[in-house]
Design a protein around this nucleic acid. Structure first.
Lengths: 149, 149
DNA sequence: TATTGTTATACTCTATAACTATA
DNA sequence: TATAGTTATAGAGTATAACAATA
């Protein structure tokens, strides 16, 4: 172990602050991108999740880390705009699957493409640097294995 | 330039995703830490800002990137809990300075100390790695100069 | 009985617009 | 007249509790 005092050393403090800056930028850009599609951040996040795969309301709440009752309203608003629809689950009639409409899929794709917040700043790093950044982030996030690209 | 297609190459995509994970963790931890003090995220952020220096309501709104009218409510609630107070500005009687009380300062400090979200994961990196992480983040964030530690 | 989704309620944060007191 | 802060209002997200339909 190199740095012993991970709590107070000035190097660590600066890294923490820089990460805070990245986090703030990330959010600003995300909200801005969502706003361009007249969506709130939460609505954009839901649409992004559903564009990967339709989900039961309950699971959606788990992914969002919020109460199921909140999901009802978010889906209501997306449904009112024709971006999402509720489908019955053939296996369990209690369950409702939230799924994006065609327009919802298009919107999600457009949203994803416009998210340059994290991509653009990476342009200033060389490939080797991105590799080492990836490896450090993997360890910070706690990824076990993974291939070497 | 090493990587030419910064938009689609799989390395960059993974880094973007990892950053997204870090951002999500950062927020969860922040909200959790604020919650332990019975504060919302916005209230904790305000208290953190004011613990550095008292600010006019207007400037506070600028830092939070929100409308001044919102700040009124946030400060109202912090003031009702005795964590913040409004002081007159001797130079301009229109201005009100928001400043933390003694208890507010203690709460802000305790809050800051409990924010291990970004610090703890850094423990798995060596000092050299933290240095190179710092340098990359600096460039991503767009810091010009800065010392070399 | 337990679970899924919803409704009802209350609180916080948000933006917009109108207001007040200063400047 | 312009600015600082506030109030009033409305929309969105959040948690809690109670409810209907289904398992």
């Amino acid at each position: 172990m190199a740095g012993r005092n991970t709590r107070t050393d000035s190097l660590t403090l600066e890294v923490v602050e820089l990460i805070g800056t990245v986090v703030a930028r990330y959010h600003e850009e995300y909200e801005r991108a969502a706003g361009r599609h007249a969506l709130t951040g939460a609505q954009a996040r839901v649409l992004g999740l559903l564009s990967l795969e339709p989900l039961p309301m309950r699971q959606l709440a788990q992914r969002l880390k919020c109460e199921p009752s909140n999901v009802t309203g978010i889906i209501d608003r997306l449904e009112a705009r024709g971006l999402v629809e509720r489908r019955p689950d053939p296996a369990d009639r209690r369950v409702k699957l939230a799924a994006p409409t065609e327009e919802g899929v298009r919107t999600a794709r457009s949203l994803r493409d416009s998210l340059d917040f994290a991509r653009e700043p990476l342009a200033s790093l060389s490939r080797d640097e991105r590799v080492s950044l990836r490896d450090m982030l993997r360890r910070m996030v706690g990824v076990g294995g993974g291939d070497g690209d």
